[in-house]
Structures are given as C-alpha cells and as structure tokens.
C-alpha cells in the first residue's frame, strides 16, 4: 500500500479541475462541511492556489453538527486563515412536508444553499461529493450545470469528455464542480494520511464505535468499529461490504429519497 502513484494521478486531476473552475466561473465558492472529503478538497485547493484559497468557503449550518465538528471548524479556519462564511439553514417546518422525516431534515441544507445562491449569485459552487458514495451521485458530471432554481436535470446533462467542461452559465444559474468525483472513500483516507491533513477525530473508534460519515447529530449514527487509526480505517474499509452512508438515516427511508433530494438541489 506504499505505492501512491494512483493518488498522484487523482491529485493532479483535482488540482486541474479546481484551476479550471477558478478560471471560468466567477464568483466561485466552495462548500465545506468539515468532513473528511471536503477537508481533503480544501487541502487540494491550497495546493492548486499555492497556499491561499482565492474564494470563500461556505458552511451550510443547521446548528446541529456535533460539537467536535464545530471545534474543528474554528481551529482550522484560524490555522489556515480561511475566508469562512457560515450560512444558517431555514428551520425544518419550512421543508416539503411530503418528504420522509430524516430526508426533510437533510433538505434544510438545500434551502440554506439556495439562500446563499440567491444572495451571492455565484457562477460556480465546488462540492466534495464522490461517485462511489451513492448510486445517484455516480451519475454526476465533474462540471454539473444547475437551473436558476438550483435543480439538477439528470436526463439532459451535457457530454463531458477529454477535459472539456460545461462552463457557460445562464443568468441566475450555476455550475456544481466536483473535483473528487472519481475518488473513493479509501482514496480519501490514504490521501489524508499521506498528506497529513487534519480531520475530526470522531472518525476514529472510541468504545467500539466510530462515525464513518459525519452528518447532523439528529440524523447520523455511528457504526460498530475498533478502527482507532487511519491504517485501521483503511483495513476496515477493504474488508467491509457495508455502504458508506449506512449511518445516514435519510438514505434508507424510501427507494428514491436521495434522488428526490438531489434533483431538488442537494449536494
């Protein structure tokens, strides 16, 4: 496992995508949830722009993140001198009542993002999603155009090949940029370890439990695990057949709950 040339290839591609976004989409912003993926992405952005991230980092805040996550946000924002914008999400009773309960809670982030989009009119939003997280995300493009309402038309996606991306943005619309799309969960951990990127220690096992995916405390549960180091996490992931988002309650509520969320503009 010491051969990390595959990570080099992923890193070079992600840096190229970040620079392409910055050259073609202005204003630009990046979503940062303080999770392992968007923190690795933040590190890649520092590499792409020689240490100084030239766009704001937006946290869609439901005020329900775990305490350790908020503490991590504060310490890293200080240490890396980040331009952090905290966007408070609207309350749950304003969400679509036909959605299942946990899905409704997750939809708060979509609405928070819509507020940010309406106010700041960014042309590009960089998001750290990966194709292997969830089948609907596997359909994504690296540059994924969204309608002015923020919705995703999965049936009419533009062709994307040879590094030519959809960078034309209609008035009021935006493009989601996904530099980590081709990364896997194991890639993220190997890269975090190799680059010595900080992470929330809730990912490490304590008393036989750890968080594999960090969401709001009301809709995320830890998994059984003894993995108390990144090496142990990687070994665990090589052995497991459980999906990554098994701890996310909303994904299992109904067959199409995640697709409905994403079509409406969820990350």
């Amino acid at each position: 496992m010491n051969d990390t040339r595959d990570l080099d290839a992923l890193e070079h591609a992600a840096i190229g995508i970040l620079r392409e976004a910055y050259a073609t989409l202005r204003p630009l912003a990046m979503l940062w949830s303080m999770g392992k993926d968007s923190t690795a992405l933040l590190w890649l952005a520092r590499k792409a722009f020689f240490g100084e991230v030239p766009f704001p980092l937006v946290q869609l805040d439901t005020e329900l993140e775990l305490d350790e996550v908020y503490a991590f946000r504060e310490s890293l924002a200080r240490a890396w001198d980040l331009d952090l914008r905290v966007e408070l999400c609207p309350p749950e009773h304003e969400m679509d009542p036909t959605l299942p309960p946990a899905t409704r809670a997750a939809a708060r982030k979509t609405e928070g993002l819509k507020r940010y989009l309406a106010r700041e009119s960014p042309q590009g939003i960089i998001v750290g999603i990966r194709r292997d997280e969830q089948a609907t995300r596997a359909k994504e493009r690296i540059f994924s155009p969204r309608s002015p309402g923020g919705t995703w038309d999965v049936r009419a996606q533009p062709p994307e090949l040879w590094g030519y991306y959809a960078t034309d943005v209609a008035h009021g619309a935006h493009v989601r940029v996904h530099p980590l799309l081709h990364w896997t969960e194991i890639d993220i951990w190997r890269y975090t370890q190799r680059e010595n990127i900080p992470y929330v220690d809730l990912y490490l096992a304590r008393d036989g439990m750890r968080y594999r995916s960090l969401g709001e405390k009301n809709i995320t549960v830890p998994i059984r695990s003894d993995a108390a180091s990144i090496d142990a996490i990687i070994a665990e992931l090589h052995a497991t057949r459980d999906p990554e988002r098994a701890g996310r309650v909303m994904d299992a509520e109904s067959e199409d709950s995640f697709e409905r969320l994403r079509t409406a503009g969820y990350m």
């Binding site: 194709r131 292997d132 089948a135 596997a138 359909k139 999965v154 049936r155 996606q157 896997t184 199409d256």
Partner: peptide, 21 residues
C-alpha cells in the same frame, strides 16, 4: 445494482453513465 434512478427501474434502461469500482 447500477440503474439507480427511479425512472430507469421503471423503464428498464440506463439513462446516464454510471461507474462502479
């Protein structure tokens, strides 16, 4: 396993490219 979109399951076709690893 691959055709995750609701419409694909109903129509039994693949709409977009999906990758599996």
């Amino acid at each position: 396993v691959l055709d995750s979109l609701q419409e694909e399951r109903d129509q039994a076709i693949t709409i977009d490219t999906t990758r599996v690893w």
